[in-house]
C-alpha cells in the first residue's frame, strides 16, 4: 500500500478518519466540554495547539527516538505543550480556564495526540506530520463544535451564548447535563454510521 501524501493525510483527518466520529478518540473531553459551543471551541483549539506542536517536535527528533523509550518521550513532549496552553488560558481567559477545569491538564492523556505521534509523526517528515496534525485538529474541531451546537441549541436555546430559539420554545435541559452528552453523541454517531454504510452500499 502506498503511503498517503501530506494532502491526503490532511483530508483524512477531516471526515474519513474524524477523531471524534470515526476513530472515537478523546471521548472523555468530548463528552465533558460539549455543553456549550464556547468551551468546546476552546478545548478543540487547545488540543489542536498541543497536537500540532507535539507532532512537529516528535517529527524533528524521530531519528533519535529509542523504540523502548518513545512513549515516554511522547508524553513528556505533550506535557510540555499542555503546560503552555494551561498557563496561557489561565493568564488570558481565566473564566474559560475555570469552566474547563481539569480537562485542560487532561489533554496530556488525550489519545488523539499520542496516537498521531505514534502513527504518523514518529515516522514521517515535518511537513507531512504537520499536515496530519492540522487535519486531525480540524476534524476534532468539527466533532466537538457539531456536538456542542446540538446540545446548546436544544438544551439552552442559544448558540455561542447568542439567543436563537424564542423564549416560548421549551429548553431540553437534559441535553446540557452529562446524560445529554451520551444521548447526543450516541445518536449523532448512529446517524453518521448509517450515512457511511448507505454510501458504501450505493
Amino acid at each position: 500500500m502506498q503511503e498517503p501524501t501530506a494532502g491526503e493525510r490532511f483530508l483524512n483527518g477531516l471526515l474519513p478518519e474524524n477523531p471524534t466520529y470515526r476513530q472515537m478518540l478523546g471521548l472523555c473531553a468530548t463528552l465533558a466540554v460539549t455543553n456549550g459551543v464556547k468551551p468546546a471551541f476552546t478545548m478543540a483549539c487547545s488540543t489542536g495547539f498541543v497536537l500540532i506542536c507535539a507532532n512537529a517536535m516528535i517529527s524533528l527528533m524521530r531519528k533519535h527516538l529509542q523504540p523502548h523509550l518513545r512513549i515516554l518521550i511522547f508524553t513528556l513532549t505533550i506535557a510540555t505543550f499542555v503546560t503552555v496552553v494551561d498557563r496561557l488560558l489561565q493568564a488570558f481567559f481565566y473564566p474559560m480556564s475555570q469552566q474547563l477545569g481539569p480537562y485542560v491538564p487532561l489533554i496530556i492523556v488525550n489519545c488523539i495526540i499520542i496516537s498521531r505521534c505514534e502513527v504518523c509523526a514518529s515516522k514521517q517528515s515535518l511537513p507531512i506530520a504537520i499536515a496530519d496534525a492540522v487535519g486531525q485538529t480540524l476534524g476534532f474541531l468539527i466533532g466537538l463544535v457539531s456536538l456542542a451546537s446540538l446540545r446548546e441549541l436544544l438544551g439552552n436555546g442559544t448558540w455561542c451564548e447568542f439567543e436563537i430559539l424564542p423564549q416560548s420554545w421549551p429548553r431540553w435541559r437534559i441535553l446540557m447535563l452529562p446524560p445529554g452528552a451520551f444521548i447526543t453523541f450516541g445518536l449523532t454517531l448512529g446517524f453518521i454510521e448509517w450515512f457511511v454504510h448507505r454510501k458504501q452500499r450505493a
Binding site: 429548553r171 431540553w172 435541559r173 437534559i174 447535563l177 446524560p179
Partner: peptide, 8 residues
C-alpha cells in the same frame, strides 16, 4: 426521566 430532567 428524560422529561423530568429536561423540564424540571
Amino acid at each position: 426521566a428524560f422529561v423530568m430532567l429536561s423540564f424540571a
